[in-house]
Simulated assay, not measured.
Amino acid sequence: MNRPIPPEESLIEYPSAFPIKVMGAHVEGFETAIVEVAMQFDPGFDPGCVERRPSKGGNYLGLTITVTATSRDQLDELYRTLTSHPLVKVVL
């Protein structure tokens, strides 16, 4: 089991704006699903700030969501939830 990282050893200062790139198939419902996940972990998340980048061929969509990070546990759980979502291919 991971030991908690003391705040003085963290590379992230909490709370802070934290961008996450999420890539998946360019299908109906992908962006809505990602926004719903973001709002689970950041109730103040603004869906209007999602950055969209379709792939050259238009088959994939890259989204950048910027959440308010409040703890390492929050970010870890957000990454786990995103990576296990069936529409998501990659999370960076």
Score class of each variant (00 low, 15 high):
Pro15His: 06
Ile12His: 04
Val88Glu: 00
Tyr14Asp: 03
Thr68Ser: 05
Ile12Phe: 12
Pro86Arg: 11
Ser71Met: 10
Pro19Ile: 09
Arg53Ile: 09
His26Asn: 15
Ala17Leu: 15
Arg3Val: 08
Ser71Glu: 14
Ile12Ala: 03
Arg72Ala: 08
Glu51Phe: 01
Arg53Trp: 12
Thr83His: 15
Ala33Gly: 14
Lys56Tyr: 04
Glu13Gly: 14
Lys56Ile: 11
Glu9Arg: 05
Pro86Gly: 04
Val90Ile: 13
Pro43Asn: 02
Gln74Ser: 01
Arg72Tyr: 02
Val91Asp: 03
Arg80Leu: 07
Glu31Gly: 05
Gly29Asn: 00
Cys49Thr: 12
Gly57Val: 13
Asn2Met: 05
Lys89Cys: 01
Thr83Pro: 01
Val91Gly: 05
Ala69Phe: 11
Thr70Arg: 05
Asp42Cys: 14
Val35Tyr: 02
Asp76His: 07
Gly57Ala: 15
Lys89Trp: 08
Ile5Asn: 04
Phe41Lys: 06
Tyr14Lys: 03
Thr70Cys: 07
Gly44Ser: 03
Glu51Tyr: 12
Val27Trp: 04
Thr70His: 10
Pro43Phe: 14
His85Tyr: 12
Glu28Thr: 04
Leu61Trp: 05
Ser10Leu: 06
Val27Glu: 09
Thr32Ile: 02
Gln40Phe: 04
Met1Asn: 08
Ala69Glu: 09
Arg52Trp: 09
Thr83Glu: 08
Lys56Phe: 03
Leu78Thr: 06
Phe45Ala: 11
Asn2Tyr: 04
Asp73Thr: 06
Leu75Trp: 04
Leu61Pro: 10
Met1Thr: 10
Ala33Leu: 09
Gly48Ala: 14
Lys89His: 12
Glu9Asp: 11
His26Gly: 00
Asn2Phe: 01
Leu63Asp: 08
Leu11Gly: 00
Leu75Tyr: 02
Arg53Met: 13
Gly44Phe: 01
Ser55Tyr: 10
Gly48Asp: 09
Glu31Gln: 15
Ser84Ile: 01
